[in-house]
Simulated scan of single mutants.
Amino acid sequence: MNTLQLVNLSLQQADLLNYSKCFATYRKNVWFRRSWDDIQQMMMTAEACYWICENGKKIGGISLSELSIGSLFLIPPYELSSSIVKYLKEFLIDRKPENTSIEAYNVLPEHLRAFQEEGFAVVRTRKCMIRPTESLIYEKLPSSFAYVTPSVQNIDKLAVLLNEAFRGTPDEQDAATYREGLMNYFTYHSDVDLLEASTMIWNHDHTEIVGVCLVSNWEESPLIYDVAVNPLYRGKGIATFILSRAISTLEEKYPVIRLFVTSGNGAEQLYAKLGFYGGDNLSHLVYK
């Protein structure tokens, strides 16, 4: 389909009832949300949603803040063009504080080129993956390891593990961020069933945590919150064990389990080997 030439673009504050219906219909379900109704209900409480219009006619929708663009969709037969991105960019440039950047979140693959043509650069790309829960047959851990349920008392050691596991990868963060994320997990994701499906692996003398899989609740379905293995202990089946255990433990409670993976993370191959199916890549971009 040829991109239509657009003139007289404008933004109009959206009425959430109609906006949510259009979003649920035209925006790809890349997060594998459970149903059209769930997506619509989620958007009924969204903020800063606008119609993209040409000559007063709705051609798409967008979520805008002072410094960001998100969740863009177009209504057929319209497709995203650099002229639309240029209009959105200039709209925000006129309103943003000086010396600040504009972020574009969750940009679909088919929209990426239009953003790049307007000077946006990719910061990170990731995708959601999903698989059914089921009782798997998997190898037990070697006797030199012991597995237990993760506990808030182990936050400091878990933060050390995450730091070692993600160092030099696209998911690398500072120690304080790891600790904050772990505290958030144990504060808000303490469901008994999900903790039972989570696993923490000790080394032979219980002095070091060498692997972890934390399962959280996201939109009423299990989500792998963190999965990590110390680089010195990789290749010993730890990641396969903790993921297989989560998939199996949750079978009677939940139909599916999801996770997110960043492009460039070698673990994506393992996830696919374990039956996880990947959605579209979504990119985070920045314009400086």
Rank of each mutant, 00 (worst) to 15 (best):
N8I: 09
K21V: 04
A24M: 07
R27N: 14
K28H: 05
W31D: 08
R33V: 01
D37L: 14
M43G: 00
E47P: 00
W51H: 05
I62F: 07
I62M: 10
L72G: 03
L74V: 04
P77V: 11
I102T: 02
E103W: 12
E103S: 13
A104N: 11
Y105M: 14
L108N: 08
L112G: 01
G119E: 02
R126P: 00
K140W: 00
L141Y: 12
S143H: 04
A146S: 13
Q153M: 00
K157I: 05
L162T: 09
P170S: 11
Q173K: 15
A176K: 13
M183P: 00
M183K: 09
N184D: 08
L194D: 08
E196I: 13
E196G: 13
T199R: 08
M200W: 06
T207I: 06
V212R: 10
C213G: 07
L214G: 01
N217M: 14
N217D: 14
W218N: 14
P222V: 13
R234A: 07
F241N: 10
R245A: 08
L250K: 12
L250H: 11
T262W: 05
G264H: 03
E268K: 06
K273H: 13
L274E: 03
G275R: 05
Y277F: 02
L285K: 02
K288I: 08
